[in-house]
Amino acid sequence: MTDLASSTLFGLPLPEIWFGLVFFILAMFLFLDGFDFGIGILFATREDDHEKETLFAAIGPFWDGNEVWLVVFGGALFAAFPEVYANLFSRYYLLMFAILAALGLRGLSPEMYEEREDEQWRRYWGWAFVVGSALTPFLLGMFAINWLTGVPGIVSVPGVLGGLAVVALTVADGAAFLGLKTRGSLRDDASAYGIRAVVAYLGLVALTLVAIYVTTPALQSALLSLPVIALVLLSAVLVAGYVVATRRGEYLAAFASAAGLVFGLVTVIAVTMFPVVDRATGLTVTEGIVSTLPLNIMTIMMALLLPIVLSYFGVLYSVFSGPIESGETYG
């Protein structure tokens, strides 16, 4: 048996593969938990108790499974690029704390909402749910853009714009998912919001890229590279596709467009960043990668586990596919 500590498995370019994998996992999270956030934001537009209950029921079986992808993202980053993980979490310490608090609020509020029927209690926890659902993607978007630009502080113009873009994207994502899960006026309203959100996303993401271009000279040539331009054009096509599909009632196509937009955005970030993996320290993929032995072991583990995880997600989503039936609840 070959020595696992001396060279990478089969001579594969594992640093680059793990760089791609980390961003793939981030995109999975933003797409999957994204619709939970979007539905949480759309919750603010509902007055009727029954409709609110339907929104809870739509995300009930999925949201905590979806959040596993965030944990895996942190875990994979820590395992593959420990120095980057340490730098990012130290540099954006308070931002991480705020993300944790927002996620906590988002997770807690539906549980509390369901505890009592009291009107004021439910109004309060309903708003807590909306705030947590909006704040989490906003802060995550800020984090992703700050990571890319390497800005030392937490609040930056590209970061804030990027945060808003991600919020708009999650609303579009959530509205498309509601297209699949609901019927009637609830679905019509969600579709209308989804269309507005996806158009807003396109504008915001364009503004974010311009802001990065202006504030971060080191990234200018990467932003004008062929793959980035192609991805931006593709995103514009997907936005148009989302609008057309939603108007025609083809919600699965709209949902797929939303997925394409999320993966497109994350790919733009990854492509612009590469081969650097932490702009602030200038650490590149090959410098930041963990030593060979753990890298090989992790690769074997990931090759075994990722297909299992992906297939049980397949089972989960097919078991709970189709519209919410009357009487289905969160619990």
């Binding site: 130290s90 540099r91 310490y93 608090a101 906590g104």
Partner: peptide, 20 residues
Amino acid sequence: VSPGLTGAEATFTLAGFVGG
């Protein structure tokens, strides 16, 4: 301890965790 962490940040988040 994270090298970039200030005492104020650590105090703030500790208070946040305890309060939360």
